[in-house]
Design a protein around this nucleic acid. Structure first.
Length: 572
RNA sequence: CGGGGCGUAGCGCAGCCUGGUUUAGCGCACCUGCUUUGGGAGCAGGGGGUCGGAGGUUCAAAUCCUCUCGCCCCGACCA
């Protein structure tokens, strides 16, 4: 492709709308343009890279035995009503009516459609397992789209769905996808971790997220420094520390202290001259089974998802002021475990504490020297707090560390949630009707590309790895006014193309400086610079975008050298 | 949905507070010509704006008031 012919509108300055680096570079590099909030056009350069990601995904999915299909974007409400998600999914599901006033939606995901398709077409255990996938545009009416392709409303996603005869087989399918995902993100040249994740409202028994490590990531993940345990922060377990504190000094008498208007942990600690580690926070939650209290050490936070999973409840939320007063007979800020009538769940973090401070369940009062089981009795001790840097790994003796990541893929073992609601049965070898066991597996294509840029850039622009680069080679003639420069550039261009290499030739009548800047900005991995001075000695220059070194190469050796570099990097 | 910010040429911005000397301006980009050509060139000429939209105040509105739409950021929410 000649630069003068491709629609590649690079920008000299950062557009004011873009905050994160990948968004800025994709706009400046002429890869994408915004049409509306969270809705983007892919320009030729951007689309080329998108297609590269898709290509890798497609190859690995096919290799893993999945079959590609394409399902409709527009989906009838009936299916969603059957699965129960028409009411459950919320405003993210963009709904509309056709001319006959029938309800439709734009597909945010395709469990309903695929399950309906498979239940109609697959009848026998002989046809299972089957894994079907598509690479297709999804629409989710996000509350707050942001960061360009990172969190868009309209976005390209690979979604795959597996159907198996039973749990064991489904877990095999899940494992197979897990491995395929690792290969995909490795081939994309990304630093990532597969982390244990909460299954959320999609349900199912277990789930992993694939996180690209990046400081700008929206998600927090914990990982063990010693073993390979890694989990989303909202899921991360914590090793239970030694129960008995050998340095216990002996219980002191319970003492009520006046703490006028001291509500927060900080205020109470300041007022009573104690550390947050000597205080126990009492939080009142509301569930469908009624209110309950959760206790955690003052310097820790309750993890609502872990609490919710421990309680096995559908809904869990912090109580409002009214409920707090009803439960504790005191305004917010003075809740404590003593004389509470609701069930108490205590985090492991308070197990070894003694003589600690708690709320007085009375306005402007706290207790000093609280102890259990003397003063109150938790119904359960459990792991219900948010993991912190340095906490013990639940799988080994190591310590957990916290990092940021971008979720580029998510795999779920769904179980029979959708096969049950939509009636996806097969006949087993005894002619008995059984539910199919499902899994679903998603990859955000655009987000993967954005994450790659987030992870690989410098002050001059994008640094594409060869597998994702929109072009593999950039030919940069410094002066197209010189006949021999142009001739050699075109010869090398044709030569590389004949070898199946993707080349961009910057034939614009621009100064060399502009071409260098644009070349760095769009991040083509290999640059061949052709200038009049070098040509007098029969030399051109090769430079890789991710290295500072420049190599002078004889014109007749260029094709071979470039071929070697590409073979080495793509083969590896 | 709550809080904050912004809409002036393709991009980045000034002008607004204190209405009129501004025919609405600057840099970059764009078009023509010439000179340049190894890290965002120079000179000369040129095109492009209903100042987001609607209403109002006024002799007079980019500027003041009201409403509205869009965009961005923080938060809440969330397969």
């Amino acid at each position: 492709m000649h630069f003068s012919k491709i629609l590649l509108p690079t920008l000299r300055e950062d557009p004011s709308e873009a905050e994160v680096i990948s968004h800025r570079l994709m706009l400046r590099g002429g890869m994408i343009r915004k049409l509306a909030s969270g809705i983007y056009s892919y320009l030729p350069l951007g689309l080329r890279s998108i297609r590269k990601v898709e290509g890798i995904v497609r190859q690995e999915m096919n290799r893993a035995g999945a079959q590609e299909i394409v399902m409709p974007v527009v989906q009838p409400a009936e299916l969603w009503q059957q699965s129960g998600r028409w009411n459950f999914y919320g405003k993210e599901l963009l709904r509309f009516k056709d001319r006959g006033a029938r309800d439709f939606c734009l597909g945010p995901t395709h469990e309903e459609v695929i399950t309906d398709l498979v239940k109609r077409e697959v009848k026998s255990y002989k046809q299972l397992p089957i894994n079907l996938y598509q690479i297709q545009t999804k629409f989710r009416d996000e509350i707050r789209p942001r960061f360009g392709l990172m969190r868009a409303r309209e976005f390209i996603m690979k979604d795959a769905y597996s159907f198996d005869v039973n749990n064991e087989a489904a877990e095999k399918s899940y494992q197979c996808m897990h491995e395929a995902y690792c290969r995909i993100f490795e081939r994309c040249g990304l630093q990532f971790r597969a982390v244990e994740a909460d299954t959320g409202s999609i349900g199912g028994s277990f789930s992993h997220e694939f996180m690209v490590l990046a400081d700008t990531g929206e998600d927090l993940l914990v990982s063990c420094g010693s073993c390979n345990y890694a989990a989303n922060l909202e899921k991360a377990e914590i090793r239970r520390s030694k129960t008995n504190n050998p340095e216990k000094a002996g219980e002191k008498a319970l003492e009520k202290v006046a703490t006028p208007k001291m509500r927060t942990v900080e205020e109470v600690c300041e007022f009573m001259q104690i550390k947050p580690g000597n205080l126990v926070k009492t939080l009142i939650f509301e569930t469908e089974n009624g209110p309950m209290a959760a206790l955690v050490r003052g310097d820790c936070e309750i993890n609502e998802i872990k609490l919710k999973n421990f309680l096995k409840v559908e809904t869990l939320g912090l109580a409002d002021d009214q409920l707090i007063e009803k439960v504790t007979h005191a305004p917010m800020g003075f809740s404590g475990p003593i004389n509470l009538s609701v069930p108490i769940i205590a985090d492991h973090s308070i197990e070894s504490m003694e003589n600690f401070v708690t709320g007085g369940n009375e306005q402007d009062a706290h207790f000093r020297n609280t102890n259990f089981p003397r003063d109150f009795q938790p119904k359960h001790f459990a792991d219900i707090r948010v993991a912190k840097e340095g906490d013990g790994c639940p799988r080994c003796r190591g310590e957990l560390k916290i990092s940021r990541g971008i979720e580029v893929g998510h795999i779920f073992k769904l179980g029979t949630k959708y096969s049950k609601s939509l009636g996806a049965y097969y006949l087993d070898e005894h002619g008995k009707e059984r539910l199919m066991v499902m899994g679903c597996y998603g990859i955000g294509i655009g987000r993967t590309l954005a994450a790659a840029i987030e992870q690989n850039h410098d002050s001059n622009g994008i640094i594409f790895s060869l597998p994702l680069a929109p072009f593999q080679v950039l030919i940069l003639p410094t002066n197209i006014g010189q006949e021999n420069v142009v001739r050699v550039a075109e010869e090398i261009y044709s030569g590389l193309r004949a070898r199946g290499i993707e080349v961009l030739l910057d034939d614009r009548k621009e100064s060399a400086g502009i071409k260098f800047k644009d070349g760095d900005l769009i991040g083509i991995p290999i640059r061949i610079t052709i200038g009049p001075k070098g040509l007098m000695e029969g030399l051109v220059e090769i430079k890789k975008r991710n290295e500072t070194q420049k190599y002078s190469v004889k014109v007749e050796e260029v094709l071979g050298r470039v071929g070697e570099i590409i073979e080495k990097e793509l083969g590896a």
